[in-house]
């Protein structure tokens, strides 16, 4: 698959404070990529780099196989649509807000009108075209910002926490819209979220950001501890890791690498922990199973698998995984 972005040795700092330190990052073209992490992990900073708003302090960056440099930054920026977490709408009507994206690109007036009309229809905004943007609700504003970001046909759509504070109906609408523009228009979509399960179920690629460092998997199962021999010890659990790993204070396991069973499995997997199911949640036709087994594990399974297991909240269950499926950093 072609790469939309390739970052190598990318560093960024606010003053003397380093906030981003990425050795390698490849984001696939025409796919959905989620960046997951807690507040202050560097998600928005990384988005600003990917939207060509801030240049990195060090490292190289390629966009659709073209080298990005200080001289062509502005040109690359125009190939991206960016929707902020709380989008800012200008003191103008909804249609003027959307049209401004075309005005900036010096699109002729006659073309602008046509495109704005089409975009308003596409996003179901026709009825509020003349409304003053400052009076819109959060969801409506998000819609307008999305329409404004997409009207010029960007190759990449970047969204910062787009699903925050959205009601269920609009959340689903937005998900459908994202899938639609990826499939039909071959747009690369990158979004940040706190919600690991949501990221995992919606995105093709999930990266987690922890303290400015990127790990190429979701951090649904992230533990802090120390290494002793071939074991990673947290305060509550001791997990077997591949031999040879000597440094690292964090261990992550992808949610789909966890195997759930009612009895202890006899297999090549070296980690087996009994626990109790504390939560079951559904997201995008997948089930998130939360198991308290000393540490809290999150596994993602299909509804059919859950039915086959025949378990419910409070039941005892075994969590197993291979030592090679862990990522220590």
């Amino acid at each position: 698959m072609n790469c939309a972005y390739e970052l190598s040795g990318t560093r960024f700092a606010y003053g003397a404070e380093p906030v981003l330190d990425i050795d390698k990052l490849k984001i696939n073209h025409s796919g959905i990529t989620a960046l997951v992490g807690p507040n202050g992990a560097g998600k928005s900073t990384l988005l600003n780099l990917l939207a060509f708003i801030n240049p990195p302090a060090a490292g190289t960056m390629r966009f659709h196989e073209q080298e990005v440099s200080a001289t062509n930054y502005q040109l690359f920026r125009r190939r991206v649509g960016y929707v902020q977490q709380k989008p800012y709408l200008f003191h103008a009507s909804v249609s003027d807000n959307i049209e401004l994206a075309l005005k900036i690109r010096r699109v002729p007036k006659s073309e602008r009108r046509e495109q704005v009309r089409n975009t308003l229809c596409k996003f179901g905004l026709e009825k509020m075209a003349g409304r003053y943007a400052q009076g819109l609700s959060g969801g409506e504003a998000q819609k307008v910002a999305l329409a404004r970001a997409l009207i010029h046909g960007p190759e990449v759509l970047i969204m910062d926490e787009p699903f925050n504070h959205l009601d269920r109906a609009f959340r689903e609408l937005l998900q459908d819209l994202i899938r639609d523009i990826v499939e039909r228009d071959k747009v690369t979509v990158i979004f940040t979220t706190h919600d690991q399960l949501h990221a995992r179920t919606l995105a093709d690629q999930v990266f987690s950001l922890i303290d400015g460092h990127l790990i190429p998997l979701s951090a649904m199962n992230l533990f802090t501890g120390t290494i002793t021999g071939d074991r990673f010890n947290t305060d509550k659990l001791s997990m077997i890791i591949p031999p040879g790993i000597q440094t690292g204070t964090r261990l992550a396991i992808e949610a789909n690498q966890l195997v759930l069973s009612r009895q202890e499995l006899e297999s090549s997997m070296r980690n087996h922990f009994p626990g109790r199911i504390s939560k079951l949640a559904t997201e995008n036709l997948q089930i998130l199973v939360t198991v308290e087994a000393g540490e809290v594990f999150h596994a993602v399974i299909t509804p059919a698998a859950l039915q086959e297991l025949g378990v419910s909240i409070g039941d005892t269950i075994w969590v197993s995984f291979k030592s090679t499926s862990v990522h220590v950093f």
Binding site: A51, I53, R78, V80, Y82, Q84, F90, I104
Partner: peptide, 22 residues
């Protein structure tokens, strides 16, 4: 958020100034 929005939309420095004044 105004400045970031203008930049993200690809406005030149001159366009950003005009939008800001507006």
């Amino acid at each position: 958020r105004l400045s970031l929005t203008c930049q993200a939309m690809g406005a030149t420095a001159w366009q950003q100034g005009i939008i800001f004044l507006s």
